[in-house]
Design a binder for these strands. Structure first.
Length: 328
DNA sequence: ACCTGTCAAGTCTGG
DNA sequence: CCAGACTTGACAGGT
């Protein structure tokens, strides 16, 4: 099984390389000339896209904050893509040229299980914005937006049903870009899997969230059904004949026994390897997103640890880039 | 150079 | 009903 590793949104290793520089509405409003302010926002966004390109020399999740204030209610008259399309296209070209897998993770304000119409409307607006950015990069539907199911509002089955209902009427261009991830507090892995199956949506298994929020199941017990969620038309939209978008997992380690839900700086190789070995037999390839505090630093450390384990046997082979081959 | 409060947005808990 | 926690990097203003 080929495992490709990626990491999240920013670098702790490369200096002066923020892809999410921003500007607050307060300072925007202090500028006397609104047009000049908008040019400033575009300059910030252009710098963010440039730094994204620098970071893409590694495998990567894109940051949602590429364009400051992009979906702010006061900025509805601004179309940032008019000025930024070439910069997005340049990032997209690099991604395609090197066969990288990229994704976004719209933050917790995107809640499709909400009972409030205005929250649903802004969630859809936010999803559309993420799709607009991926389109501006010229990336096919294999570049996904990963979200959680959302709040439970005191009645989890009703909230899940509302998610299904509200998802079902989304435009297809939004639907085909979505992956669903189990969270650490509310919708656990079996519950998320259930919703994924009902909607034909690919599920991203977060093995740390599963560890702290479960129904007593072991993560690899769910894997055969999770794997199947990647075999739907929505999951595989835009793949070429013979091409296959591998399932994705999220990987992090507990900060401490007293604070098990928080993310540690690095990743413990042993539990990760145990999981990967369990799924290796029926999974040809999987992409693993490192969600550790040390970001790319954690990825480099993990690769070093895996290299040492590989030298001692263990059925691991370290390959080019941040990837390994794991024997079942 | 360093520290602290704040940021557009949601949900949950507890007072 | 409202304040604070959750979680997050970076800004903005202060020392």
């Amino acid at each position: 099984m080929i495992v490709r590793f990626g990491y999240v949104a920013m670098s702790t290793v490369i200096p002066d390389c923020s892809p999410s520089k921003t500007m607050t509405m307060a300072s925007f409003n202090k500028l006397s000339d609104r047009e000049a302010g908008i040019r400033r926002l575009e300059t910030i966004a252009r710098g963010n896209l440039h730094n994204t390109l620098r970071l893409l020399k590694q495998v990567y999740r894109l940051t949602s904050k590429l364009i400051p204030l992009a979906t702010h209610p006061d900025m509805q008259d601004w179309n940032p893509f008019a000025a930024l399309t070439p910069d997005f296209a340049e990032v997209g070209s690099y991604v395609k040229k090197h066969g990288l897998r990229v994704s976004f993770h719209p933050d917790h304000f995107t809640v499709l299980s909400t009972p409030r119409p205005e929250v649903l409307a802004s969630s859809i607006r936010d999803l559309q914005h993420h799709v607009d950015m991926l389109n501006a990069m010229g990336l096919p539907a294999t570049a996904k937006n990963n979200i959680h199911i959302g709040g439970a509002y005191g009645d989890k089955p009703a909230a899940a049903a509302r998610f299904v209902e509200q998802f079902a009427v989304l435009p297809q261009v939004l639907q085909e870009r979505i992956t669903l991830e189990n969270d650490d507090k509310t919708f656990n892995a079996p519950e998320t899997l259930e919703v994924s199956r009902r909607l034909g949506l690919p599920m991203v298994l977060d093995i740390h969230h599963q560890w702290v929020n479960n129904e007593g199941e072991l993560p690899w017990e769910l894997w055969p059904e999770i794997l199947k969620t990647w075999q739907t038309p929505l999951a595989q939209r835009d793949t070429l004949p013979g091409e296959w978008l591998p399932p994705k997992i999220h990987v992090s380690s507990p900060r401490s026994p007293s604070d098990p839900r928080s993310h540690a700086d690095g990743v413990e190789p042993a539990p990760l390897l145990a999981f990967l070995k369990r799924i290796a037999a029926d999974t040809p390839a999987v992409d693993a997103m490192i969600e550790a505090k040390a970001k790319d630093g954690a990825l480099f450390d993990l690769m070093e640890a895996l290299k040492e384990l590989a030298e001692a046997g263990n059925g691991i082979k370290v390959l080019d880039g941040a990837s390994v081959n794991i024997e079942p």
